[in-house]
């Protein structure tokens, strides 16, 4: 099914919502100067799918998921999120960001705000929710990530694992359709990795569409519907975790797995 990018304006008539994939990436290429970070990547994420993206550092996996909510731009190709084509137009980016939540490696909580304010600020400013309703909703999601009594603390008073769970609650408070996780456990102390992965597993169980860049192969095996292996800006291999881990076909994937599954 090869379609030219410039035909996107005469794209198929509106399909029923359930049939639209959550994310459709076609022929995506990105350059930093002369270095090509993404090489004609094709990737579709179905609604409700849990996708794990892995690969050696510098393989373009973070860049790829950061293009989905326009934190990174791209030069060629097409990204469609929930049926909305992602261009550089403010309306398109705003519409996509309304549907996509993101969790970062470094948490990126706002240090000058309390945990609760971290979760309510965007609700009030972007969605126009009243302070009372925003706090109610934020407390609901803080409860879900098991940060019950810390709502009035500042981020610096929490452990790394707690901070990352607040970051998840902050993204969930906006009630996104898709959650992006960019190496969510890489900056954590080992004993705190589990609490964050448990929260993510719980979220997966509730049917959230998730794209997760991670080195946590245990999580991938247990939660992912599909594992995508990237190297040097391209998708080298993908498949269900059972196949990918037991019988990787590509040499580069085998080499990578033998490195991290010692």
């Amino acid at each position: 099914m090869i379609r030219k990018n410039n035909l996107s304006l005469v794209e198929s008539p509106p399909e029923p919502r359930g049939a639209v994939p959550a994310v459709k990436i076609r022929n995506l290429s990105k350059w930093y100067g002369s270095f090509q970070a993404l090489k004609a990547v094709d990737l579709t994420i179905a609604r409700g799918e849990k996708l794990v993206i892995c690969g050696p550092s510098g393989s373009g996996k973070s860049t790829l998921i950061r293009t989905i909510n326009a934190l990174e731009g791209f030069q060629e190709g097409q990204i469609v999120v929930d049926g909305i084509e992602l261009t550089r137009k403010p309306e398109a980016v705003e519409a996509v960001r309304k549907r996509v939540g993101m969790v970062f490696q470094q948490f990126n909580l706002f240090p000058h705000l309390t945990v609760l304010e971290n979760c309510t600020l965007a609700l009030r400013l972007v969605r126009g929710v009243s302070q009372k309703d925003a706090e109610e909703r934020a407390l609901h999601y803080l409860g879900k990530v098991r940060i019950p009594d810390q709502a009035h603390k500042y981020a610096s008073q929490l452990s790394g694992g707690q901070q990352q769970r607040v970051a998840i609650a902050r993204a969930l408070s906006m009630q996104p359709d898709i959650m992006l996780f960019d190496e969510p456990t890489s900056a954590l102390d080992p004993e705190m990795v589990k609490e964050v992965l448990d929260t993510m597993t719980q979220l997966a169980g509730e049917g959230m569409t998730m794209a997760v860049v991670t080195h946590e192969m245990g999580f991938a095996r247990q939660v992912a519907d599909r594992v995508v292996f990237m190297d040097r800006g391209e998708i080298v291999e993908q498949g269900p975790p059972s196949e990918f881990f037991s019988n990787p076909k590509e040499l580069r994937a085998r080499a990578f797995l033998s490195q991290i599954l010692h």
Partner: peptide, 23 residues
């Protein structure tokens, strides 16, 4: 201020003006 603060705010949907004045 680290770039991540800007990115987190923009990813949540805050406009550039609000990101500047609030974050």
């Amino acid at each position: 201020i680290p770039r991540g603060q800007w990115e987190a705010s923009r990813a949540l949907g805050l406009k550039p003006k609000d990101t500047l004045t609030r974050i």
